[in-house]
Design a protein around this nucleic acid. Structure first.
Lengths: 260, 260
DNA sequence: CGGATGGTTGAAACCGTTCAAAATCTGTGG
DNA sequence: CCACAGATTTTGAACGGTTTCAACCATCCG
């Protein structure tokens, strides 16, 4: 089954829960820039072409040459790279409000793939629409650039995390990062948020084995740092988690830059 | 000694060897886009403010808020992050033609530092000049965006490399990447190029210990894959090096994208 | 109920680290 | 040109964090 077939039923099936305040993309961009009504309308209009995609499906394949930008409205996706022998590395999570590449269409072809980890709703914004915004709405353009810079900063931290931290620190760091990113788009209730990742997926993002993820997770639970019920994660002791992960919140750049 | 003091002597001391064809930034941008004389003039003019900086000095500190963009004309620099206990991770190398962040001035402050690894010559392009190009020279703007996308792609590969490859594969991958990147800016003679990195610095980029870098390097030499004399590296068996590193050249995006 | 997927456990092996010391190289001043 | 200090590379041995392998258990779902 391809994405195209799946989308037949749901494309243009505009889901009103993502309008205005419910639009996570808008919510994210507003963090950075003071947007006027023109920009807000553009954002709401841009996400009109929505698709529901089941879990564990490639949204963009490696080698493909995308001609549009995708915006995550709900669900969880990831970028990943497979090595020939089956080893896999996840290089980013995409949560609501995130983009699957603002300017990929500048490059020849995708050097990695993007897949859903949970059933997701993704909006497609075509190339021309983005270019139009680039010309007409400079404040929005700035806000979009900002998001790509933050993505890069997160990636840099992942290198640090995987390269220099122990499994225990690494996992703590990732969980706290996910917590803060969810908080920024309002997807947090208490200290509790949806973490629909299997241990195998966590292993692939942290460069560890499943077995070791399992044991490290147990340790964090035993030490009353976190609690996992079903697919939700509760952070019981934020301060300790921050401390062991040596977390420096700067890199998320959640305070706005010069233009706000 | 600060960079400001050092620069007094050499600022505006325009070094003609970086004019025209000798300008590595231009060389890099031309790979991607067909640039007209207007763009080429802008590039040559933009790098007029040059500074010589000795090795092992921070060019940009963590926490700083830069208001300009720096272009590497010669030498080798790196981005790095220090953890509190002294562990260090290098997250990127900057070689001639690379930028120390195109749009950092959008963010509040640097979440990492940039330092010289060798004596380097770096040009400073101020914010207004970049913004001017963004408005006046769309082809150049596209080319600049392309370079930031490539930087991000490289970073993603580093995550894969550190997360999922053995020390032996990892080191091979890095050496081959550096070889190709140097080739792209014409800094290769034969299969031989300047690699002025200490083993400690290699360790900090690959997330390994110095001792293990040493042993892995020895293995590569024993297996006649590479040769090291002084600060230059010769690749003796490119094919085998590519093979063990499982290298996929796609991510460097050295073939031009749609606009060329 | 059966099969699949994901989580948990134990034991053994291994890759890479740590520590500590020796060897080599580099630059500097006498 | 030598002497010397400091940094970098190299070596050996012991340790340990993480992986691997191979089960077993739990849960979900048709």
């Amino acid at each position: 089954m391809t994405i195209e077939e799946l989308s037949q039923g749901s494309a243009h099936n505009r889901n009103s829960r993502f309008d205005g305040e419910g639009n996570p993309w808008r919510r994210k961009l507003e963090q950075f820039a003071e947007l006027g009504s023109e920009e807000l309308e553009w954002i709401d209009h841009a996400i009109r072409d929505q698709k529901e995609i089941p879990a564990d499906l490639d949204v963009i394949h490696e080698g493909e040459r995308p001609d549009c930008v995708k915006v995550v409205l709900s669900g969880l996706l990831c970028r990943y790279t497979m090595l020939e022998d089956g080893r896999r590395q996840i290089t980013a999570f995409l949560i609501p409000g995130d983009l699957c590449d603002l300017h990929v269409f500048l490059l020849q072809k995708m050097d990695h793939a993007i897949a859903t980890l949970t059933p997701s709703i993704v909006a497609t914004v075509n190339r021309e629409e983005i270019l139009d915004a680039n010309i007409r709405l400079p404040r929005l353009t700035l806000a979009l650039w900002w998001t790509t810079l933050v993505d890069e900063a997160v990636l840099r931290q992942w290198v640090v995390n995987i390269g220099r931290r122990s499994a225990y620190e690494r996992l703590s760091h990732l969980l706290w990062e996910l917590y803060l990113r969810h908080a920024a788009v309002g997807a947090i209730a208490g200290h509790n948020f949806a973490l629909p990742l299997s241990q195998a997926q966590l292993a692939d993002t942290l460069g560890l084995s499943v077995v070791h993820i399992n044991r490290t997770l147990q340790r964090l639970r035993k030490e009353k740092m976190i609690e996992i019920d079903g697919r939700r994660l509760t952070i019981l002791d934020p301060n300790r988690l921050k401390a062991i992960s040596n977390f420096d919140p700067t890199y998320l750049h959640q305070q706005a830059g010069p233009s706000k």
